[in-house]
């Protein structure tokens, strides 16, 4: 097992995922299995192989630097839980 329960708790916290105590063991096992598989792949000799950062053999298309958007605030805030004077409101973030 390459991960322990505390590591899984930490990962869940970082991703803001609420994992219940009873599921923790299953996740620990499943995630460890994935990492074990990664270890197997790491053992392959890839000397001379270019790293792949994207599965498509393509490169990024670029757009011209032009402002194409107009103010859509009303529509975009229509389904926000709370707004005031044009700003989105969220529970207070303590600095």
């Amino acid at each position: 097992m390459s991960l322990d329960i505390d590591a899984v708790k930490n990962i869940a916290h970082l991703a803001r995922i609420d994992v219940s105590e009873k599921d923790l063991e299953t996740y620990t096992k499943d995630l460890s299995n994935i990492l074990d598989m990664v270890d197997q792949m790491n053992a392959v000799d890839v000397t001379g192989v270019e790293p792949l950062s994207n599965a498509l053999d393509a490169t990024q298309r670029l757009r011209a630097d032009v402002v194409t958007e107009t103010n859509k605030r009303e529509a975009l805030q229509a389904n926000a839980p709370a707004t005031e004077d044009g700003v989105f409101l969220v529970p207070r973030v303590i600095e």
Partner: peptide, 29 residues
Amino acid sequence: STNSKLFSGSSIAYGAEPNTQANEVDLAL
């Protein structure tokens, strides 16, 4: 010093009314 954002066509002009220069991409819809 561009006209538009890194990944969207919204303006980056300073001092606009809040959220009037934020489109669907900027809001991560």
